[in-house]
Amino acid sequence: MSIRDEIRSRTQESPPRLFFLPPLIPALPIVRELFVSQEVYRVASPPWSTADPGPRFAQMRAFLDIWTSGALISVANNPYRKGRSTFMARIDPAPDEVFDIRCIAPNPGMRVLGCFADRDLFVALTTAMREDLATDKDWRNEREACKAAWRRLFPGYRPFSGANLNEYISANILLV
């Protein structure tokens, strides 16, 4: 079975363990693909409370829709050399193939961690409030949670790995 067969199976389970997440605005195109775990689906789906963290979840969803609709995004391959508000960045260590979508506003923002299953196909697995990622240990725990979520969903499959970021995302990216 291919990784897409596996993804399709996870979306067809009852209850599903993966969800395809199209943009909230129905007129937006679907250019890149995004599947989300139950954990991400819960916080990425409206309605949200008007009190915190509701607006943070809404902004997070806008970031996810920016990914899906194919808008220009900045991406950093080096976990330690990136602009403060780079859209997507690889998490250290690189061989783990974990990336995060960095929802930087409103401060302190959120992080959505996941792995690529193929080019332009991102699987978002965990979320974390930025204030909960204060130390290296916090980051390590979050990264390991993400990797564990991948293993539970796709036993026997490694996340997609490419020689450079062009192999992860086909178009409309700014490499920073």
Partner: peptide, 11 residues
């Protein structure tokens, strides 16, 4: 809703 405003701000 503040959440709708937040969504469109980020967009």
């Amino acid at each position: 809703p503040d959440t709708a405003l937040a969504y469109f701000r980020a967009r």
